[in-house]
Protein backbone atom coordinates (compact mmCIF):
# COMPACT_ATOMS: atom_id res chain seq x y z
CA UNK A 1 0.00 0.00 0.00
CA UNK A 2 2.53 2.56 1.11
CA UNK A 3 5.01 1.55 -1.60
CA UNK A 4 2.36 2.16 -4.23
CA UNK A 5 1.62 5.57 -2.85
CA UNK A 6 5.17 6.70 -3.29
CA UNK A 7 5.29 6.04 -7.02
CA UNK A 8 1.74 7.28 -7.51
CA UNK A 9 2.77 10.54 -5.89
CA UNK A 10 5.81 10.74 -8.11
CA UNK A 11 3.68 10.20 -11.20
CA UNK A 12 1.05 12.72 -10.26
CA UNK A 13 3.82 15.25 -9.60
CA UNK A 14 5.13 14.54 -13.09
CA UNK A 15 1.70 14.98 -14.57
CA UNK A 16 1.30 18.34 -12.89
CA UNK A 17 4.64 19.35 -14.27
CA UNK A 18 3.59 18.43 -17.80
CA UNK A 19 0.37 20.41 -17.44
CA UNK A 20 2.32 23.43 -16.19
CA UNK A 21 4.66 22.98 -19.12
CA UNK A 22 1.60 23.22 -21.39
CA UNK A 23 0.61 26.56 -20.00
CA UNK A 24 4.11 27.79 -20.46
CA UNK A 25 4.05 26.63 -24.07
CA UNK A 26 0.74 28.38 -24.68
CA UNK A 27 2.08 31.60 -23.18
CA UNK A 28 5.24 31.21 -25.25
CA UNK A 29 3.28 30.96 -28.46
CA UNK A 30 0.95 33.76 -27.47
CA UNK A 31 3.67 36.23 -26.73
CA UNK A 32 5.32 35.67 -30.10
CA UNK A 33 2.90 38.25 -31.42
CA UNK A 34 3.51 41.66 -29.89
CA UNK A 35 0.08 42.89 -30.89
CA UNK A 36 -1.75 40.22 -28.93
CA UNK A 37 0.34 40.99 -25.86
CA UNK A 38 -0.66 44.64 -26.28
CA UNK A 39 -4.29 43.52 -26.58
CA UNK A 40 -4.04 41.47 -23.42
CA UNK A 41 -2.37 44.28 -21.49
CA UNK A 42 -5.04 46.73 -22.65
CA UNK A 43 -7.76 44.39 -21.44
CA UNK A 44 -6.05 43.87 -18.11
CA UNK A 45 -5.69 47.64 -17.63
CA UNK A 46 -9.29 48.31 -18.61
CA UNK A 47 -10.45 45.50 -16.34
CA UNK A 48 -8.46 46.92 -13.46
CA UNK A 49 -9.99 50.34 -14.01
CA UNK A 50 -13.46 48.80 -14.21
CA UNK A 51 -13.09 46.83 -11.00
CA UNK A 52 -11.59 49.68 -9.04
CA UNK A 53 -13.59 52.41 -10.73
CA UNK A 54 -14.41 54.05 -7.38
CA UNK A 55 -10.71 54.57 -6.75
CA UNK A 56 -9.49 55.15 -10.28
CA UNK A 57 -12.09 57.66 -11.42
CA UNK A 58 -11.23 61.25 -10.43
CA UNK A 59 -14.89 62.01 -9.68
CA UNK A 60 -16.58 58.75 -8.75
CA UNK A 61 -19.77 60.47 -7.68
CA UNK A 62 -20.28 61.69 -11.25
CA UNK A 63 -21.06 58.20 -12.47
CA UNK A 64 -24.82 58.32 -12.04
CA UNK A 65 -27.23 61.04 -11.05
CA UNK A 66 -25.23 64.15 -10.24
CA UNK A 67 -25.87 67.70 -11.20
CA UNK A 68 -23.55 70.69 -11.06
CA UNK A 69 -24.74 73.10 -13.73
CA UNK A 70 -22.00 75.56 -13.09
CA UNK A 71 -19.56 72.96 -14.36
CA UNK A 72 -21.57 71.95 -17.43
CA UNK A 73 -20.28 71.92 -21.04
CA UNK A 74 -16.61 72.34 -20.09
CA UNK A 75 -14.18 71.33 -22.85
CA UNK A 76 -11.23 69.06 -21.95
CA UNK A 77 -8.91 70.60 -19.37
CA UNK A 78 -6.50 69.55 -16.66
CA UNK A 79 -9.31 68.94 -14.13
CA UNK A 80 -11.55 67.19 -16.64
CA UNK A 81 -9.35 65.57 -19.22
CA UNK A 82 -12.30 64.60 -21.41
CA UNK A 83 -14.44 67.59 -20.51
CA UNK A 84 -17.80 67.62 -18.74
CA UNK A 85 -21.34 66.97 -19.91
CA UNK A 86 -24.56 68.93 -19.83
CA UNK A 87 -25.02 68.26 -16.11
CA UNK A 88 -21.44 69.08 -15.30
CA UNK A 89 -20.33 65.48 -14.83
CA UNK A 90 -16.77 64.47 -15.56
CA UNK A 91 -16.91 62.45 -18.82
CA UNK A 92 -13.69 60.56 -18.10
CA UNK A 93 -15.00 59.32 -14.75
CA UNK A 94 -18.21 58.16 -16.36
CA UNK A 95 -16.25 56.26 -19.03
CA UNK A 96 -14.35 54.38 -16.38
CA UNK A 97 -17.64 53.28 -14.87
CA UNK A 98 -18.75 52.56 -18.43
CA UNK A 99 -15.97 49.99 -18.69
CA UNK A 100 -17.45 48.26 -15.69
CA UNK A 101 -20.75 47.92 -17.49
CA UNK A 102 -19.00 46.85 -20.67
CA UNK A 103 -17.21 43.98 -18.91
CA UNK A 104 -20.42 43.04 -17.15
CA UNK A 105 -22.15 42.82 -20.51
CA UNK A 106 -19.42 40.69 -21.99
CA UNK A 107 -19.36 38.42 -18.97
CA UNK A 108 -23.11 38.10 -18.84
CA UNK A 109 -23.66 37.46 -22.53
CA UNK A 110 -20.79 35.06 -22.98
CA UNK A 111 -21.59 33.13 -19.84
CA UNK A 112 -25.07 32.49 -21.21
CA UNK A 113 -24.24 32.08 -24.85
CA UNK A 114 -21.06 30.01 -24.83
CA UNK A 115 -22.10 27.17 -22.53
CA UNK A 116 -25.57 26.95 -24.08
CA UNK A 117 -24.32 26.98 -27.64
CA UNK A 118 -21.41 24.65 -27.04
CA UNK A 119 -23.40 22.06 -25.12
CA UNK A 120 -26.22 22.06 -27.65
CA UNK A 121 -23.72 21.88 -30.51
CA UNK A 122 -21.92 18.93 -28.94
CA UNK A 123 -25.18 17.10 -28.35
CA UNK A 124 -26.54 17.80 -31.83
CA UNK A 125 -23.32 16.65 -33.48
CA UNK A 126 -22.99 13.58 -31.32
CA UNK A 127 -26.57 12.48 -31.91
CA UNK A 128 -26.25 12.93 -35.63
CA UNK A 129 -29.15 11.41 -37.53
CA UNK A 130 -31.59 11.44 -34.63
CA UNK A 131 -34.45 13.80 -33.88
CA UNK A 132 -32.33 15.47 -31.20
CA UNK A 133 -30.05 16.72 -33.94
CA UNK A 134 -32.98 17.86 -36.05
CA UNK A 135 -34.58 19.84 -33.23
CA UNK A 136 -31.41 21.63 -32.18
CA UNK A 137 -30.22 22.38 -35.69
CA UNK A 138 -33.62 23.61 -36.88
CA UNK A 139 -34.09 25.79 -33.85
CA UNK A 140 -30.73 27.46 -34.21
CA UNK A 141 -31.27 27.89 -37.95
CA UNK A 142 -34.47 29.77 -37.22
CA UNK A 143 -32.69 32.11 -34.86
CA UNK A 144 -29.85 32.59 -37.31
CA UNK A 145 -32.19 33.42 -40.17
CA UNK A 146 -33.74 36.31 -38.25
CA UNK A 147 -31.86 39.58 -38.78
CA UNK A 148 -29.84 39.86 -35.58
CA UNK A 149 -30.31 43.48 -34.69
CA UNK A 150 -34.03 43.39 -35.46
CA UNK A 151 -34.38 40.38 -33.21
CA UNK A 152 -32.48 41.97 -30.40
CA UNK A 153 -34.35 45.21 -30.77
CA UNK A 154 -37.76 43.60 -30.81
CA UNK A 155 -36.98 41.60 -27.71
CA UNK A 156 -35.56 44.60 -25.98
CA UNK A 157 -38.64 46.60 -26.90
CA UNK A 158 -41.07 43.99 -25.55
CA UNK A 159 -39.26 43.76 -22.27
CA UNK A 160 -38.56 46.68 -20.03
CA UNK A 161 -35.60 48.56 -21.49
CA UNK A 162 -32.69 48.06 -19.15
CA UNK A 163 -29.17 46.79 -19.45
CA UNK A 164 -30.03 43.32 -18.24
CA UNK A 165 -32.81 42.76 -20.73
CA UNK A 166 -30.80 44.15 -23.60
CA UNK A 167 -28.08 41.64 -22.80
CA UNK A 168 -30.68 38.90 -22.70
CA UNK A 169 -31.73 39.97 -26.17
CA UNK A 170 -28.15 39.88 -27.42
CA UNK A 171 -27.69 36.42 -25.94
CA UNK A 172 -30.77 35.14 -27.65
CA UNK A 173 -29.46 36.05 -31.05
CA UNK A 174 -25.95 34.85 -30.32
CA UNK A 175 -26.13 31.30 -29.02
CA UNK A 176 -26.97 29.63 -32.37
CA UNK A 177 -23.59 30.64 -33.76
CA UNK A 178 -21.87 28.63 -31.06
CA UNK A 179 -24.20 25.74 -31.79
CA UNK A 180 -23.26 25.92 -35.45
CA UNK A 181 -19.54 26.09 -34.79
CA UNK A 182 -19.50 23.29 -32.23
CA UNK A 183 -21.95 21.18 -34.19
CA UNK A 184 -19.91 21.20 -37.38
CA UNK A 185 -16.69 20.36 -35.55
CA UNK A 186 -18.42 17.58 -33.63
CA UNK A 187 -19.90 16.06 -36.76
CA UNK A 188 -16.52 15.88 -38.42
CA UNK A 189 -14.88 14.36 -35.33
CA UNK A 190 -17.74 12.06 -34.43
CA UNK A 191 -16.54 9.01 -36.35
CA UNK A 192 -12.82 9.46 -35.93
CA UNK A 193 -11.19 6.22 -34.83
CA UNK A 194 -10.17 7.66 -31.46
CA UNK A 195 -13.81 8.40 -30.65
CA UNK A 196 -14.90 4.95 -31.83
CA UNK A 197 -12.15 3.44 -29.71
CA UNK A 198 -13.31 5.24 -26.56
CA UNK A 199 -16.95 4.38 -27.23
CA UNK A 200 -16.24 0.76 -27.93
CA UNK A 201 -14.33 0.54 -24.66
CA UNK A 202 -17.41 1.65 -22.82
CA UNK A 203 -16.79 5.36 -22.23
CA UNK A 204 -19.91 7.26 -21.21
CA UNK A 205 -21.50 9.84 -23.47
CA UNK A 206 -20.53 12.55 -21.00
CA UNK A 207 -16.93 11.43 -21.24
CA UNK A 208 -17.02 11.46 -25.05
CA UNK A 209 -18.57 14.92 -25.19
CA UNK A 210 -16.54 16.69 -22.56
CA UNK A 211 -13.30 14.75 -22.34
CA UNK A 212 -12.75 13.65 -25.92
CA UNK A 213 -14.53 16.13 -28.18
CA UNK A 214 -14.56 19.39 -26.24
CA UNK A 215 -10.78 19.61 -25.64
CA UNK A 216 -10.19 19.42 -29.37
CA UNK A 217 -12.80 22.02 -30.14
CA UNK A 218 -11.84 24.31 -27.30
CA UNK A 219 -9.18 26.25 -29.18
CA UNK A 220 -11.53 27.27 -31.96
CA UNK A 221 -14.27 28.10 -29.48
CA UNK A 222 -11.97 30.27 -27.36
CA UNK A 223 -10.76 32.11 -30.43
CA UNK A 224 -14.33 32.89 -31.35
CA UNK A 225 -15.12 33.95 -27.78
CA UNK A 226 -12.36 36.55 -27.70
CA UNK A 227 -13.15 37.84 -31.15
CA UNK A 228 -16.85 38.00 -30.21
CA UNK A 229 -16.31 39.88 -26.98
CA UNK A 230 -15.77 43.12 -28.88
CA UNK A 231 -18.92 42.56 -30.88
CA UNK A 232 -20.99 42.13 -27.74
CA UNK A 233 -20.00 45.65 -26.79
CA UNK A 234 -20.80 46.97 -30.24
CA UNK A 235 -24.25 45.38 -30.40
CA UNK A 236 -24.95 46.38 -26.80
CA UNK A 237 -23.98 49.93 -27.70
CA UNK A 238 -26.25 49.86 -30.73
CA UNK A 239 -29.20 48.78 -28.60
CA UNK A 240 -28.45 51.44 -26.03
CA UNK A 241 -27.98 53.98 -28.77
CA UNK A 242 -31.55 53.55 -30.00
CA UNK A 243 -32.73 53.82 -26.42
CA UNK A 244 -33.72 50.22 -25.77
CA UNK A 245 -30.78 49.33 -23.56
CA UNK A 246 -29.55 50.83 -20.35
CA UNK A 247 -31.31 54.10 -19.47
CA UNK A 248 -29.69 57.31 -18.33
CA UNK A 249 -28.19 58.02 -15.92
CA UNK A 250 -26.56 54.58 -16.12
CA UNK A 251 -22.98 55.21 -17.20
CA UNK A 252 -23.15 52.69 -20.04
CA UNK A 253 -20.90 53.62 -22.95
CA UNK A 254 -23.58 53.12 -25.62
CA UNK A 255 -26.15 55.04 -23.60
CA UNK A 256 -23.64 57.85 -23.11
CA UNK A 257 -22.92 58.10 -26.82
CA UNK A 258 -26.65 58.17 -27.45
CA UNK A 259 -27.30 60.86 -24.81
CA UNK A 260 -24.36 63.02 -25.78
CA UNK A 261 -24.78 62.77 -29.53
CA UNK A 262 -27.61 65.29 -29.25
CA UNK A 263 -24.98 67.86 -28.35
CA UNK A 264 -22.91 67.35 -31.47
CA UNK A 265 -21.08 69.09 -33.02
CA UNK A 266 -20.46 71.97 -30.52
CA UNK A 267 -19.84 69.75 -27.51
CA UNK A 268 -17.96 67.05 -29.43
CA UNK A 269 -15.87 65.91 -26.50
CA UNK A 270 -18.91 64.48 -24.72
CA UNK A 271 -19.53 61.82 -27.42
CA UNK A 272 -15.90 61.46 -28.39
CA UNK A 273 -14.86 60.00 -25.04
CA UNK A 274 -17.39 57.18 -24.75
CA UNK A 275 -17.12 56.39 -28.48
CA UNK A 276 -13.36 56.07 -28.12
CA UNK A 277 -13.93 53.87 -25.07
CA UNK A 278 -16.03 51.48 -27.16
CA UNK A 279 -13.45 51.41 -29.93
CA UNK A 280 -10.70 50.76 -27.39
CA UNK A 281 -12.40 47.70 -25.90
CA UNK A 282 -13.23 46.26 -29.30
CA UNK A 283 -9.70 46.82 -30.49
CA UNK A 284 -8.24 45.20 -27.38
CA UNK A 285 -10.33 42.07 -27.74
CA UNK A 286 -9.58 41.77 -31.43
CA UNK A 287 -5.85 41.99 -30.83
CA UNK A 288 -6.19 39.37 -28.10
CA UNK A 289 -8.28 37.22 -30.41
CA UNK A 290 -5.55 37.17 -33.03
CA UNK A 291 -3.08 35.98 -30.42
CA UNK A 292 -5.45 33.28 -29.18
CA UNK A 293 -5.97 32.14 -32.73
CA UNK A 294 -2.21 31.87 -33.28
CA UNK A 295 -1.84 29.81 -30.12
CA UNK A 296 -4.33 27.24 -31.36
CA UNK A 297 -3.71 27.44 -35.11
CA UNK A 298 -0.23 25.96 -34.73
CA UNK A 299 -1.60 22.65 -33.51
Amino acid sequence: MSGATVSEVKFSELEKKVKRENWRRIWFRFKKSKLSVIGLSMILILLFMAVFAEYVAPYPSHAGLYIAFKNAYKPPSIEHILGTDMYGRDVFSRIIFGFRYAFMMIGLVLSIVVPTGVILGLIAGYYRGTFIETVIVRLSDIFISLPPLVLALSIASILEPNIFNSMLAVSLMWWPWYVKLTYSMTVSLRNEPFILAAESQGASTLHILFRELLPIELGTILTKVTLDAGWVILIGAAISFVGLGAQPPTPDLGTMVSEYSKYLPEYWWMSLGPAAGIVLIILAFNLLGDGVRDVFAGE
Binding site: F194, E212, I216, E299
Partner: peptide, 15 residues
Protein backbone atom coordinates in the same frame (compact mmCIF):
# COMPACT_ATOMS: atom_id res chain seq x y z
CA UNK B 1 -10.89 -4.60 -28.74
CA UNK B 2 -9.75 -2.99 -31.98
CA UNK B 3 -6.53 -1.35 -33.16
CA UNK B 4 -7.04 0.92 -36.15
CA UNK B 5 -4.98 1.46 -39.25
CA UNK B 6 -4.05 5.11 -39.14
CA UNK B 7 -1.81 5.99 -36.19
CA UNK B 8 -2.59 9.66 -36.83
CA UNK B 9 -6.27 9.35 -35.98
CA UNK B 10 -6.42 6.50 -33.53
CA UNK B 11 -5.34 8.59 -30.52
CA UNK B 12 -7.05 11.75 -29.33
CA UNK B 13 -4.53 14.55 -30.01
CA UNK B 14 -5.54 16.44 -26.84
CA UNK B 15 -5.17 13.64 -24.36
Amino acid sequence: QIVFQDPGTSLNPKR
